[in-house]
Computed example of a mutant assay.
Amino acid sequence: MELEVGLLVQSIAGHDKGSYFFIFKEEAEYIYLVDGKYRCLDRPKKKKKKHVKSLVWEKQSPGDKIREKLKVTDEEIKYFIRCFKREEQVVRR
């Protein structure tokens, strides 16, 4: 799956391995990630594209707002990721 702005991804390398982020901005081989908690919209994390994997999510998310360049808050992002983690844990059990 091609990485694009607004997509939910999981880090697969680095000290944040296993963490979830939204792609906020994209450049050549780098993407800028936000999670609303440690990496806010005003201070996104720069990471190479090859160090993340995309996650499929069918429901509406803050990523849709990011993609459409609408106003999104750190709280919305943080809340969504927290809910996503809970739902993923229920599915794995």
Rank of each mutant, 00 (worst) to 15 (best):
C40F: 08
K59I: 01
E2K: 14
E29T: 04
V56H: 07
K65I: 11
E68T: 06
T73L: 05
V34N: 07
E87S: 06
K50V: 10
L7N: 11
I31E: 07
K53S: 08
I31F: 02
E76L: 06
F84S: 02
G63K: 04
K17R: 12
P62L: 01
G14M: 02
R82L: 08
E87A: 05
F22A: 06
E68Y: 03
F84V: 00
L33D: 13
F21A: 03
K59L: 11
F80D: 04
K69S: 14
E75F: 08
L55E: 09
R67T: 02
L70S: 08
K17D: 07
V90S: 09
R93G: 07
F24K: 07
T73C: 12
K46D: 03
E76K: 09
R82H: 13
C40N: 11
D74E: 12
Q60W: 09
A28I: 13
F21H: 15
E26A: 06
L55F: 00
Q10E: 11
R93M: 14
C83K: 14
L8M: 13
D35L: 10
I81R: 12
H15D: 13
G36N: 06
I31G: 00
K48V: 04
F80Y: 08
R43K: 14
M1Y: 11
G14V: 03
G63R: 10
I23E: 06
K48T: 03
P44E: 08
K78H: 13
H51I: 00
G18H: 09
V90D: 11
K45T: 02
A13S: 15
E4M: 10
E29I: 03
M1P: 07
D64Q: 09
K45L: 15
H51Q: 10
D42V: 02
I12F: 00
W57N: 07
F21C: 01
G6T: 09
V5Q: 07
E29R: 13
R67I: 01
V52C: 07
E87V: 04
V56S: 08
E4A: 07
E58Q: 14
K59R: 05
L3A: 14
K71E: 06
V56G: 00
E4K: 13
K50W: 10
F24M: 00
D35F: 02
E26H: 08
E27P: 03
V91L: 13
E87P: 01
K46T: 11
G18W: 11
K25R: 12
G6E: 03
P44C: 05
D42G: 05
Y20T: 03
K85N: 08
G14Q: 13
K65V: 02
D42K: 04
K48M: 10
L7F: 02
P44A: 14
C40S: 15
I77C: 08
R92E: 12
E75K: 14
P62C: 04
F21S: 07
R67N: 04
V5M: 06
V34D: 01
E4P: 03
R93C: 03
K69C: 11
K45I: 00
I23C: 01
K53I: 13
R92V: 09
E26T: 09
E29P: 00
I77P: 05
F21Q: 03
